[in-house]
Nucleic acid binder design. Structure first.
Lengths: 335, 335
DNA sequence: CTGTTAGCGCCTTCAG
DNA sequence: CTGAAGGCGCTAACAG
């Protein structure tokens, strides 16, 4: 049925060993034989079987990425970065979605191990370390935007704390004194850090840190929407809102809109991430840019180049920057 | 180093065959033996090797999807649909990006074959049939939104022509008589069909089909932006624009904005796809909804259930529907 | 119910 | 430079 190395061997009148050498380019093979082999390969339409090849213990040339939800626009950009370096090195990329469920993640990790992937990029912080530890033992792994206690593991992340600071500082510079924050899920370290940056900046500016101006939501549009409604219900004065990410900012924008506040005329808004969407919105969203694509590139590069378990671990922190667009402006009206 | 079936066989005091049976659940195995095996598996931390398992000729439990660009928000939703059914059946999903380059697509297809994937979902219409034919010979394949001349191949697509009609009809019903169309790339069948629907609808309504109101762009934001500027430069009167997809509509929206036209007050706008973004925009975009997630689900289901090459081919067409939001309203001002 | 024996397709010593 | 032989980890007939 399928043509194997043996078929082309007999067709070319040589042994399988010679064919193997000719194809893998390992040992030396005579010019003439090489040609006859190439010919036979062509004529018979031979397709090497990577399964058999990898069975020998070599690499599979396949890595995997685990994301919470590919539908969230942050992740496709990240995946694209990973994919880019995977392709450069002729690796294939398996995409897994955890749906933010630790059990699913662990199950998928186990599945990936059976498939003998060369390594995995784990994105997000939703799996407890202990559950993870067993599932990834001996598996090359690089985490992204995840606060991991796993020892010997490599990680890549943006400087979320600096991001929180930058966003808040920008609003302070615009003259805002009552700055609210729509925070992310409390248990996520990236959310904590952004919140921490916000607080640091407030303090550094000598502004009052009114805890009633901080409301926790999630990283989704609905969460931002709901969070802002909660904030509004508290009836505290504020003239600007720093949202934990762009999607939440979209929700906040809509909630503000529904309540009759105009952005940025009545309230200024700053997001985080700088997903493509941010530039499409009206007003275009001022936000903190994470180098999402590079985050992916770095993660994949580390994974493919260095991340053998046990090797000295390494943690990279990428810089963020402010992207000024139209959703934040100097203070005028206020609630 | 790695623990194999043989290790656990000797540990449990049985033969490898018995272990194999116990683990795969094929043949019958005594209660006691089964337990001792389970124990050994646990104690030694055995991880089955799917490579060896698949080498036997069985399935690999892995399918692949080829998309032009995962960063385009249409595709993550589609991929999510595919992923969903893949997971339900314990399959893994390989993600490949073609970057709209036929050569890349063919190369990746070849790579996937070496990896012995069980099948692939090919999205979009950018690879010429002949180049493809060789690369996918004997490989289960389902195409999505692609007009394929490949015989014996399965496909899933939305009813783009009906979509074009629905969008245009909606604008006609709102009283618009001069309706422009920002079309997609001319060589893509889905673009042709949407354009065809637009023309049909115009004709059915007895409206003049002014070819100067049709301008070709691409499926991106920049393309829509540029296309609308071209349209504006022609200085023909129009009060509504039907865009080939939502991303192009975003570009059109911005171009209109820059030119001082308000949507929907001065010009009505209708998109196509109904990506999440559409609902986030202001004004929220009226658009033709493609059941993107279902498109993915159906494609994967067909692939996993039926798509053995040679079997009677099947082509599914999914229905589209109009989503009325805020970007289109009854005619008032006009250019 | 269980063990023995062949391979799956390829690579890799080891001789020639 | 080339061939023969063994094995990667597992499954699938066959016999018991």
């Amino acid at each position: 049925m399928t043509v194997t190395i043996r078929d082309i061997a007999s067709d070319a009148g040589v042994s399988v060993a010679t064919v193997s050498r000719a194809l893998s380019g390992n040992g030396r093979v005579g010019e003439g034989t090489r040609e006859r082999i190439a010919e036979a390969v062509e004529r018979l339409g031979y397709q090497p079987n990577d399964l058999a090849r990898s069975l020998h213990g070599g690499a599979t040339g396949t890595i995997a990425v685990l994301v919470p939800d590919i539908t969230n626009p942050f992740f496709p950009e990240l995946v694209a970065g990973i994919q880019a370096v995977a392709n450069e090195r002729e690796n294939l990329l398996l995409l897994c979605q955890t749906g933010e469920d630790p059990a699913t993640a662990v199950r998928e990790l186990r599945h990936l191990r059976r498939k003998r992937v060369d390594g995995v990029v784990l994105v997000g912080g939703l799996v407890p370390d202990d559950a993870l530890a067993g599932a990834v033992e001996g598996l090359p792994l690089v985490t992204v935007d995840r606060d991991t206690g796993l020892s010997g593991r490599w990680s890549v992340r943006a400087d979320h704390r600096a991001g929180g600071r930058i966003a808040t500082e920008h609003l302070v510079e615009l003259g805002h004194e009552r700055i609210a924050h729509v925070a992310g899920p409390e248990h996520l370290s990236v959310a904590q850090e952004r919140l921490g940056g916000y607080r640091e900046s407030l303090e550094a500016s000598g502004l009052e840190a009114d805890e009633a101006l901080v409301v926790h939501g999630d990283f989704g549009e609905a969460g931002g929407h709901e969070a802002l409604r909660t904030l509004l219900r508290r009836r505290r004065e504020f003239s600007a809102v720093f949202c934990c990410n762009d999607l939440a900012a979209v929700g906040a924008l809509h909630a503000l809109d529904e309540a009759g506040f105009r952005v940025p005329d009545d309230v200024s808004l700053v997001g985080f991430d700088d997903i493509h969407l941010a530039g499409y919105l009206r007003p275009a969203l001022t936000t903190v840019r994470q180098p999402i694509h590079d985050l992916g590139r770095r993660a994949a590069t580390l994974l493919l180049e260095h991340a053998v378990p046990g090797e000295a671990e390494r943690h990279e922190v990428l810089e963020v920057s402010l992207v000024r667009r139209d959703s934040a402006r100097s203070v005028r009206g206020r609630r």
